[in-house]
């Protein structure tokens, strides 16, 4: 049995975002430990919020479940210079990569950027720029097979 579709989608996003020009291979999923001081620009991917509803009425086991998953792509840039421009460059590279394949290799119906939040922190020896890109991802599965995309 394959992994839950949510896992497959997260893995697909990580694969898509690995190797971008600015963030290179500094891409992590569901990271819970802090990044190293010299470990940015970096991307961390989370899947923390999802809404779902049945597309068919009834209790049959083959009914379809429509799911809207929010994928949070966090970007970190710790630098004394051009941190604001670098964070925008990272956003550009991420959006370009995702929109090249909005169905995420057939796992989803669609994936699009829903919102972007950018923040700055002046504490520490270098300023930190931090952005969160929320991608809304719609996917469908049969109720009894949450590991197979429909």
């Amino acid at each position: 049995m394959a992994n839950h579709l949510r896992t497959q989608i997260r893995d697909q996003i990580k694969s898509t975002l690995t190797g971008l020009t600015t963030t290179a291979n500094r891409v992590y999923d569901s990271r819970v430990y802090p990044l190293a001081s010299q470990g940015t620009p970096a991307i961390v991917i989370y899947t923390k919020s999802e809404d779902s509803e049945p597309l068919d009425m009834g209790t049959n086991t083959t009914r379809l479940i429509n799911r809207n998953l929010t994928i949070a792509v966090e970007v970190y840039v710790k630098s004394t210079a051009n941190f604001d421009n670098t964070i925008d460059t990272c956003c550009k590279e991420i959006e370009t990569a995702i929109y090249t394949d909005p169905t995420l290799n057939g796992l989803a119906q669609d994936c699009y950027l829903e919102s972007t939040e950018i923040d700055f922190n002046s504490d520490g020896d270098e300023p930190l720029a931090f952005a969160t890109l929320n991608f809304l991802t719609n996917y469908i599965n049969k109720a009894t097979t949450p590991d197979v995309a429909q």
Binding site: Y28, R31, V32, Y33, P34, L35, A36, S37, G39, T40, V44, E74, Y76, K78, D119, N121, D123, G124, D125, E126, L128, F130, T132
Partner: peptide, 18 residues
Amino acid sequence: NNEFLELDEGAGVESTQP
């Protein structure tokens, strides 16, 4: 003084505060 500081955005980023 250059003590360790964790910037608490998201997962956090290690830093120091000189």
